[in-house]
Amino acid sequence: EWSVQQVSHWLMSLNLEQYVSEFSAQNITGEQLLQLDGNKLKALGMTASQDRAVVKKKLKEMK
């Protein structure tokens, strides 16, 4: 059960800090993070497919 802050730290740990402000603005918590798919990541401004791939891979490892 991650807070928005913990999601931000997680993104930073993946060197994806450029997305922290948008994820925070949308109040993405750990629970919501686990529901994100490629389209939702795109909607959050994650347009680079490599970045989405990293996030999806890491989320899969956490589930």
Rank of each mutant, 00 (worst) to 15 (best):
L16Y: 01
E31D: 11
K56L: 15
M62S: 03
W2D: 08
K58D: 08
A48V: 11
F23M: 05
L14S: 04
V20T: 10
Q26G: 05
M12C: 08
N15Q: 10
N27A: 09
F23Q: 07
A25M: 11
E1F: 15
V55C: 06
A25P: 03
V20N: 10
Q5C: 11
E22Q: 12
A25N: 12
A25W: 00
S3P: 03
L14M: 11
L16C: 03
T29M: 04
I28H: 07
N39H: 13
E17I: 02
R52P: 02
A48T: 12
A43H: 11
R52S: 06
Q35R: 14
K58S: 14
G45A: 01
L11S: 02
K58N: 10
T29D: 15
M62K: 05
S8I: 09
L36K: 05
T29P: 04
Q32C: 08
G30R: 03
Q6E: 13
K40A: 13
E61S: 07
A48L: 11
K56T: 15
K40W: 02
M62A: 07
L11V: 02
A48S: 15
D37T: 11
Q50E: 15
L16G: 02
V20P: 10
A43R: 12
D37V: 01
K60Q: 13
S21I: 07
V55R: 00
L59K: 03
M62G: 04
F23C: 04
N27D: 09
G30E: 04
E31S: 12
G45D: 02
V4N: 10
F23Y: 04
L59T: 00
L11P: 01
E17H: 15
E1K: 15
W10Y: 05
W2Y: 07
Q6K: 05
S21V: 09
E17Y: 07
L59M: 04
G30F: 10
M46K: 02
I28R: 02
A48H: 14
S8R: 08
Q35G: 11
K63A: 06
Q32L: 11
G45V: 01
L14F: 06
L14P: 00
D51R: 01
L36V: 08
L16K: 02
L11A: 02
V54K: 15
L33E: 05
Q32S: 09
E22K: 13
I28L: 04
V7E: 01
K42N: 09
K60L: 13
L16V: 01
N39Q: 14
M12G: 11
S3F: 07
S24L: 13
K58W: 10
L14G: 00
V4T: 12
E22A: 14
T29R: 07
I28A: 05
L11E: 01
K63Y: 06
S49M: 09
V4W: 05
S13H: 03
K60A: 15
A43T: 11
E1S: 14
K42F: 06
L33M: 05
F23I: 05
E17F: 03
Q26M: 06
W10R: 05
A53D: 10
D37I: 00
D37R: 03
Q5F: 05
M62P: 06
L14K: 03
K56C: 14
A53I: 10
Q18P: 06
W2F: 06
V4H: 07
N27W: 00
Q50T: 10
M62F: 11
E22S: 14
G30W: 07
M46C: 05
S8H: 06
L34M: 13
E17R: 08
Q32W: 01
M46E: 02
Y19V: 06
M62V: 09
L44C: 02
D37P: 06
S24V: 15
S8T: 14
L41H: 02
L44R: 03
W2T: 02
M62E: 08
D51A: 04
W10N: 05
M62Q: 07
R52T: 06
G38R: 10
D37G: 02
V54D: 03
L16T: 02
F23R: 06
V20H: 00
E17M: 07
L33S: 06
Q50L: 08
L41I: 05
Q6A: 06
L14V: 08
K57C: 09
S49T: 12
S49Q: 12
Q5P: 06
K56S: 12
V4I: 10
K40S: 10
S21E: 13
L36M: 15
G45R: 02
T29K: 04
D51P: 02
G45K: 06
Q32A: 13
K60M: 14
A53H: 10
K42Q: 12
W10I: 11
K57W: 07
